[in-house]
Each structure stands twice: as structure tokens, then as C-alpha cells.
Design a protein around this nucleic acid. Structure first.
Lengths: 121, 121
DNA sequence: TAACTAATCAACCTATTGGTTTATCAACCC
DNA sequence: GGGTTGATAAACCAATAGGTTGATTAGTTA
């Protein structure tokens, strides 16, 4: 059931953050856990729609859920957010290093690796 | 077309990175500029499709284009990538700080602005 | 038990996305 | 000029994402 390897997870995460509503949810959750009802309150859209958004975030493991009676609080998962910044920085830093001709930085960052780069040439 | 304020730009950027093909393009471009034909070569899809993807990245200002005769090389724009990591870190760091009960970090970061590279556990 | 609350499921609708193919534009090279 | 190359535009299509409403599952409380 956990057929989500590291690469799929990156896919899901970036996909999840592509929606403005979901980014607002992340923003809200950075201030602490909240239930679906609480999260839905500031939005125009229905509670069900928000629930769906949460599921998308959950599948990307950007959030987790706990249990408190019939409530199911949503928690932010900073570790997964870090994986995103790691991916972005991987390319940003390489390019910036090249701009300055510092390939020392390039090598010290290549170790960080671990994504999907299968290009030839 | 230039009505893209900072927030729209963030929208466009995350949206752009939500596609696996576009992320592979970014990956390729981190090793240096390339033309559409060069970029399209490793992909199954048509050149036109790649061209469209480039336009999406361009609108998000994640890449820029120069001119060389009839070629139009695509260049990565590290500055915009940095804006993404800044956004993510904004929430990730706040949450991580709360985990550890360090709201000192929280306040020093609440000011926000231009977070470069400084976080390293 | 019944009633209430939190959240999800299910069916459905519409706009957008990512892809195709064909045709066109623009700059180079005999 | 005519031909070739690099890149885009236009029209179209299937799949999906994001939204809706209505019904349903759990848990809580009277």
C-alpha cells in the first residue's frame, strides 16, 4: 500500500503545493494543528472541498492526522517540506555556483543528491 | 501580461514545478542553458509539447530566454527558485521552531524578507 | 434510544492541462 | 531566390482537477 517511493512523493508534494488553497492551508497549519472545520472556516468553498485538499496534502505526506474523539486534527510535517527545499536548492545552488565559477560548492552539494536525474549526454 | 505581482508569481512557480516533465527540464537547465530541441531530445513527447512547457516555466520566470540567431536558448533563473525555497522555509522553520519551543527563532524569522542559505541543521 | 457533530463518500459537472497534428513564422545557408 | 532548421501558433482531444450537493459513517451526548 505504501507504493510511494521517494520520487513519487516529490511528485505528489509539488503537485500538492501547486494549488493556492492548499498553500493557504499549509500557512495556517504552520501556526499549529487544526481540524477540517477550523481549516475550512476562512474559505468560500465547502467543507468537503477542503477535506479533499487535506487528503491531497496527506497523500503527499506534507501533513499527518491524529485522532481526538470524532475530530481528526491535521498537523504539518516539516520534514517533508524540507525535502522540497532540498530538491529546489539542489539545482538552484548548482546554477548559482556556476555563475560564480565555484564548482567547489557544486561538488559538496552533489553528495546531497538522491532525486530523479536520468539524463544522458 | 506584466500584471504578475509577487503572489501570482508564486502561484505560477509552484504550478510550474508540479509537472514532472518541467522539473526534469529544470534539472537539465541547472547544468547550463539549452535550446528547445536539445531539451526535447530525451523526452518521448513532441517538441511542441516541450515548447509549451518552457513557456509555462518562462511565465513563472523560473527560466529566461536569450537570442542566438534562430535559436532561443533557455536559461535557469536561480533567483526565482530561491523565492520558492524562501516560501517553504517560512512555514517549515516556524513549525520546527514550535516543535522545540524556540520562539526566539520564530521571531527572528517572522520579519521575513530574503532568506538566503542559512538553515542547516 | 435519539439527536447532534465531525468528517468522509459518492455521483456529478465544468474548466483546465497536457498532449497531439498541421500549418506558419523567422533566420540562416547555399 | 529556394531550401533547411529552430521554434511557435492554432485547432483539437482525452483525462483530470477542483468544485458542487446529497447521503453516509463514526463518535459524543442527552
Amino acid at each position: 500500500m505504501d507504493t510511494t517511493d521517494d520520487d513519487d512523493l516529490l511528485d505528489l508534494a509539488f503537485m500538492a503545493l501547486s494549488d493556492p488553497v492548499r498553500r493557504r492551508l499549509i500557512s495556517r497549519l504552520s501556526r499549529g494543528p487544526a481540524t477540517v472545520n477550523e481549516l475550512a472556516e476562512p474559505f468560500e468553498i465547502s467543507k468537503q472541498a477542503v477535506s479533499k485538499h487535506i487528503q491531497v496534502l496527506e497523500q503527499a505526506q506534507l501533513v499527518t492526522r491524529s485522532r481526538d474523539a470524532q475530530r481528526r486534527p491535521v498537523h504539518l510535517n516539516p520534514a517533508r517540506l524540507e525535502a522540497l527545499t532540498a530538491w529546489i536548492d539542489q539545482y538552484r545552488l548548482v546554477r548559482e555556483a556556476q555563475f560564480r565559477g565555484l564548482d567547489a560548492v557544486l561538488h559538496s552539494n552533489a553528495a546531497h543528491g538522491g532525486s530523479s536525474q536520468k539524463d544522458r549526454k
